[in-house]
Design a protein around this nucleic acid. Structure first.
Length: 487
RNA sequence: GCGGGCAUAGCUCAGUGGUAGAGCAUCAGCUUCCCAAGCUGAGGGUCGCGGGUUCAAAUCCCGCUGUCCGCUCCA
């Protein structure tokens, strides 16, 4: 990593701690790897990101007209599924096998092999032999690697009570597809949205909150007919990319990248990642914020028939040595009957799956800015400012009395209480006025209001813009409407 | 999982065997000043955790944990 980028990331991490955005989990006990806590400002920022997403994708969606870029109108609803689900959910979905392996490490060549594939794997030192056959080989015993967090249902620790913390929220949507369809008066095409925690035992949690073991997802499963699915895939790629740019990720650091066919999961008909060039990554490298995937009928079919594997061009149920499904599905019919065409089919799925914590980190990195503004003597002074989009800024407005006497605190207090009815507003009368502006700049507060001597005469206050530091004098009676149109 | 670096106040760091420090930040007061670093004062650290060596350990040794970098692995 280049020095300059590392320095920038260090400054962001330091700011996040200093201002109460992000703390390491369980810090007073020495910390715990891969887990993070959000402090007073961090929780506001994170909630805003989730609220804006929910608003833009679900409650604010107009299902009576055709959105730009879409073929037809569509409906959106939400759910909130449990974190612990029936263990068979993960077996049928393929996660159990994918995330659960017996692995063998070679201490000599640092390679790792799946225990069941050693007879067919080449030794890294001598590809003509298999691991363990070369004299230099130094293999560990097969060890169980489980990327899913295991837990137990019921107080009794018993292997038959094993369950898992979900490694993704998506399956909670698929298993509720039938419930939503039969109760929410929706018909295809429609989407189900969900925000919630997910857990993965990452082998190497790294890069601040980017790869955490406990993280939060914002996922949509969009159900449509097979023949319309490609169009909806294109729609969602564009729709989701635009969402990030609309919240401030405007720079060349954001990109939409199509996966090559070889890179895609076996069930995917198309996948694109929305990626951000985080400062902690090497030059030219990008990290995933969201994956938009065309999953065909894989998910619903899996939960009908059982775990699917690819066989040439088709997906078929994986069988065990007795010819039965290796991991059975629910056996329930999850197909859809389309009244208009009088046809029955298993809906295809487009999945825009976003990481809340990763989005938040990208917004913070993008917003972090150092500039210089003149002090009271006209000498440029360095300033640190988080240029967060006003919709996600933790605090929307700060209210100050210029000095804490002559009745200014009382007037500022009235304004504070009035604005607080609508937004998260903070009040500060401590320290010099310049210092108070700087504090708010570091927190990303878009607007500051100052009550000064002239307020006492004509009722006007100054409204200061975070990005430009420009102040304008406005009537305090108009503040609510004025700020409303700028947020 | 392997190898290497790092761990001292909220933040950035100094302190290499002998009484735990600085700057910034925070708090109280003064100043009444529209863009940080004016004045006075205060609080805050079992020096990551555990063990060992020593009369004496932040400092030396061992283990653990966390973190960073590089491999490895990978949704």
């Amino acid at each position: 990593m280049p020095d300059g980028k590392k320095k920038k990331m260090d400054k962001i991490v330091s700011l996040c701690k200093r201002r109460g955005f992000i703390f390491q989990s369980s810090e007073i006990y020495g910390g715990i790897g891969g887990f993070w806590d959000y402090g007073p400002l961090g929780v506001e920022l994170k909630r805003n990101i989730k609220d804006v997403w929910w608003r833009d994708m679900v409650t604010g969606h107009d299902d009576t007209s055709t959105p730009v870029g879409a073929a037809t109108p569509y409906e959106m609803v939400g759910i909130d599924a449990s974190i612990v689900m029936h263990p068979q959910v993960w077996k049928a979905s393929g996660h159990y096998d994918l995330f659960h392996d017996m692995l063998v490490d070679c201490r000599t060549c640092k390679a790792r092999f799946r225990a069941d594939q050693i007879p067919t794997s080449p030794c890294s030192r001598k590809p003509s032999k298999h691991p363990g056959e070369h004299t230099d080989c130094d293999l560990t015993e097969p060890r169980e690697f489980n990327l899913m967090f295991k837990t137990f249902i019921g107080a009794l620790i018993d292997p038959t009570a094993e369950a898992y913390l979900r490694p993704e929220t998506a399956q909670g949507i698929f298993v509720n597809f039938k419930n939503v369809l039969s109760t929410a008066r929706v018909k295809l095409p429609f989407g189900i949205a969900q925000i919630g925690k997910a857990f993965r035992n990452e082998i190497t949690p790294r890069n601040y909150t980017f790869r955490s073991r406990e993280f939060e997802q914002m996922e949509i499963e969009f159900f449509c007919s097979p023949d319309s699915s490609q169009g909806w895939y294109d729609y969602w790629c564009a729709r989701r990319f635009t969402w990030y740019t609309s919240l401030g990720l405007k720079s060349e650091r954001l990109r939409l990248r199509d996966h090559a066919a070889s890179e895609r999961a076996h069930y995917s008909c198309g996948t694109a990642d929305i990626e951000y060039a985080f400062p902690f990554l090497a030059e030219g490298e990008f990290g995933e914020l969201e994956g938009v995937s065309h999953r065909g009928d894989f998910d619903l079919r899996s939960h009908m028939e059982g775990k699917l594997v690819r066989d040439g061009d088709i997906l078929k149920v994986e069988l065990d040595e007795h010819g039965r499904a290796s991991h059975a599905g629910s056996g329930k019919d999850l197909s859809y009957f389309d009244d208009a065409t009088q046809t029955k089919f298993i809906p295809h799925v487009i999945e825009p799956s976003a990481g809340v914590d990763r989005a938040m980190l990208a917004f913070l990195c993008e917003a972090y800015t150092e500039d210089a503004i003149p002090d009271d003597k006209g000498v440029p002074q360095e300033r640190v400012v988080l240029k967060l989009h006003p919709r996600i800024a933790p605090v929307k407005v700060a209210v100050f009395p210029l000095i804490k006497k002559d009745g200014m605190p009382e007037i500022a207090g009235e304004i504070y209480r009035e604005l607080k009815l609508k937004w998260n507003v903070s009040y500060d009368q401590k320290g010099s006025i310049g210092r108070r502006y700087r504090r708010q700049d570091e927190s990303g507060t878009p607007f500051c209001i100052t009550v000064d001597h002239q307020t006492l005469i004509d009722g006007t206050v100054t409204l200061r813009d975070r990005n430009t530091t420009v102040q304008e004098r406005v009537n305090s009676a108009n503040l609510v409407s004025l700020i409303e149109e700028r947020l």
